[in-house]
Design a binder for these strands. Structure first.
Lengths: 339, 339
DNA sequence: CTGAAAGCGCTAACAA
DNA sequence: TTGTTAGCGCTTTCAG
């Protein structure tokens, strides 16, 4: 017999428990896995021993033996704009919380789009957004790892995705402004490399077109979702000739910045300019003028992604690809007024 | 011979690679682990086979065999105030990035303080802050898992910790205000259950006392770090009798809110009231009045924690407990003026 | 209801 | 250099 590890191994294993309880390791395994076919007094003995030895089964051995893994890998593109956001935090919170509840381990991967995932061992993967990392999805799909993509509607690949209906949400925001009598409506976009931002822009366009309002490109201000660029946009927007009477901003954080900037430039909100945001970020409530916004069910999306992934990870059930689009809701507060 | 799994196993193992390359699995293992004692032509054959079969070694088997784990568990108390912050995001980013670089897996645990960690399998643990979860640290320590605590100076336990010198930072902020001639200086605290917030409060006190200024409890406004409570504090602060001429706020996010609120109430910043924040959150730069603040090296703390943990996880080296206090830096911008 | 034993995929000691 | 082989700790089959 060869001792590989020098010195006595510190970790207590199922063997120690078995010895102490006076049963076989099989029986201990059964108790751990809550098999019902164990005599009550044996079960008690084992549980006693487990407690006494403070035994915790080795997840690695379990996984090796079963071939199953309960690790959920959350892939977030390492991309400033995305990461510095209400959005990212909500997602992590939502997913983290549900994983905890579902006894799943959450592995966080902040990744450059190009690099391979090498995610063998992952029981399932959640892709938060897509920014140049479709190859990673393909890689995972090839390896037959269950995947869910969130915040990006993927229609060209057989993968479950859960996204927000940004287009309708944005359109609703714009149409609301139109219904208030606004005709000169600007849009501060998010980072257009994200699907969310580009769809919001599209929704903005569609909302105007539906009411025969010409889309004026000078009214479209592209940003990277950052507060700084929002401020810059707001400054241009307020000082241009024929300034818009309303603006739809692609995130609440930026909308708040636009509001502040506008006020500093002597404009009243909503007196001189009406503002609609996107997110329903609680920060929007605290200003002197509560922000009208488009609520998107971020936490629901996050939680649903874990649920869907669990379904896919469950080997009993047949995997079923779903394409889910979550609706938004216009939340009318104080930052808009009829013209 | 018993086939446990029904059907042929899909996953390709080291054996398949060995067969294809015409060598033993040991040799394959050596190539994988970059052992130098492999003949060049064997190495090439193996690498060829690996590529062809798209082989990825099973981390579980590796860990089981070596007894080592490269999983870093980041424990974050599930606690609103902490989680909704610049701070949390910076931490996750810093730690996530460095883990990626160091080839460590990052497991995220959002946890209720009371619940046991059951972190067997973790190669190391980083505790981000402490809010009622010291029992989890004790549990990990008992199991001999390398631990690092960040943002909380732990002097009563033999554990490496990396914290910010909040006390000095806060004191410096207050003394700066004093040096400008201010005598009526208020403080908007963070959530006092966190060590950071309570030390900033202490630093505030000390700064005043050092200059023989009486600490007036009416000037201390306790919050939970939220924007809402910051606003409430600002309103009280601006409308009280003998309003302060300066205020030190425990976070930049709140300081910005205080600034906005003060302006809305007709106060000029820094004309009527000087403001100092804490964090050096980039948001502080974008307002019309750039925020004077105390810079804390969050990312450094995050990254150092991974480095220290790596050291502890390295079985070659002797574990060495360190107590690290990172200095802050006063960043003077535009939100304060001499009285 | 219980236990012996095979096997999950890999590493490392040892011998060749 | 290389290969043989004994584990790592657990689950599961199969025979009692």
């Amino acid at each position: 017999m060869v001792r590989i590890r020098k010195g006595p191994s510190k970790t207590i294993s199922i063997k120690d428990v078995a010895r102490l309880a006076g049963v076989s390791i099989t029986t201990v395994s059964r108790v751990i896995n809550k098999a019902t076919t164990v005599k009550e007094h044996h079960r008690l003995k084992v549980q006693e021993a487990v407690k006494q030895l403070k035994f915790q089964p080795s997840v690695f051995a379990q996984r090796l033996a079963t071939g199953r893994s309960n690790v959920v890998t959350l892939v977030i593109p390492r991309y400033e704009g995305i990461f510095y956001s209400f959005y990212a935090l909500e997602l992590i919170r939502g997913i983290g919380t549900l994983c905890a509840v579902s006894k799943l381990d959450l592995l966080l991967r902040l990744t450059e789009g190009g690099t391979p995932l090498a995610a063998r061992g992952a029981g399932g993967i959640i892709f938060a957004d897509f920014v140049g990392n479709r190859s990673q999805l393909n890689e995972a799909l090839e390896q037959n790892i269950p995947c869910v993509v969130i915040n990006h509607y993927v229609d060209d690949l057989p993968v479950t995705c859960i996204a927000i209906d940004n287009l309708s949400g944005a359109q609703a925001a714009v149409e609301y402004l139109v219904s208030l009598g606004h005709r000169c409506i600007a849009h501060v976009t998010g980072d257009i490399v994200t699907q969310a931002a580009s769809q919001r822009l599209q929704g903005y366009r569609r909302g105007l077109e539906k009411h025969k309002i010409r889309v004026d490109d000078r009214y479209i201000f592209k940003t990277d979702y950052s507060r700084g660029q929002a401020r810059a946009a707001a400054e241009k927007l307020c000082t241009m000739e024929n300034p818009p009477t309303a603006v739809f901003v692609a995130s609440d954080a930026m909308a708040l910045e636009v509001m502040t900037t506008a006020k500093e430039l002597g404009k009243s909100v909503p007196g001189d300019i009406s503002i609609v945001g996107f997110d329903d970020n609680p920060s929007g409530l605290y200003g002197s003028v509560a922000l009208t916004t488009v609520r998107q069910p971020l936490v629901k999306m996050a939680q649903d992604s874990v649920k869907e992934l669990s379904l896919l990870m469950d080997r009993e059930k047949k995997p079923q690809v779903k394409k889910i689009l979550l609706p938004t809701e216009l939340v009318i507060r104080e930052s808009c007024r009829p013209l």
